[in-house]
């Protein structure tokens, strides 16, 4: 099936069920033309950031490794291993590289869980 996305860019868009998310294994979702990376962490929280890695220009963030720096949950890009905050999208470790596609920080999207459905709000992204 091909998911068609409701026309609004300003509302919550359902992308998958919470059960589709395996702890610490990110997935990518297509919300309109925007690729979103979604992560469920071991404390049950769900986070969404842009799937585009600013340092490589490839849509790969969903395939990175989750972790933390201090208390801040993080995601590391699978290409050149930059580390970003999952809370703010801020790039915490640049690995001495310059971003090639916007950035260096990631857009963070608002996530709600409604009745077992994971909902993303692209408008929250910045």
């Amino acid at each position: 099936m091909t998911a068609t996305v409701p026309g609004t860019r300003h509302g919550l868009v359902p992308v998958c069920s919470l059960d589709d998310l395996v702890t610490d294994l990110g997935v990518a979702a297509l919300v309109g033309d925007t690729q979103v990376a979604i992560f469920r962490l071991d404390d049950g929280s769900v986070h969404a950031v842009q799937n585009l890695c600013p340092f490589s220009g490839a849509n790969v963030m969903s395939r990175g490794i989750t972790g933390d720096r201090g208390d801040e949950p993080t995601i590391a890009s699978p290409i050149y291993k930059q580390v970003f905050s999952l809370l703010t999208g801020k790039c915490l470790v640049t690995m001495d590289k310059e971003p090639v596609a916007g950035g260096p920080d990631l857009a963070v999207y608002q996530v709600s869980i409604d009745n077992g459905q994971v909902m993303i709000n692209l408008a929250g992204g910045e």
Binding site: M1, T2, A3, A29, L30, V31, I38, N59
Partner: peptide
């Protein structure tokens, strides 16, 4: 894509 398993990265 979790919501579009048959679609390739556009």
């Amino acid at each position: 894509f979790v919501n579009a398993p048959a679609e390739g990265d556009p």
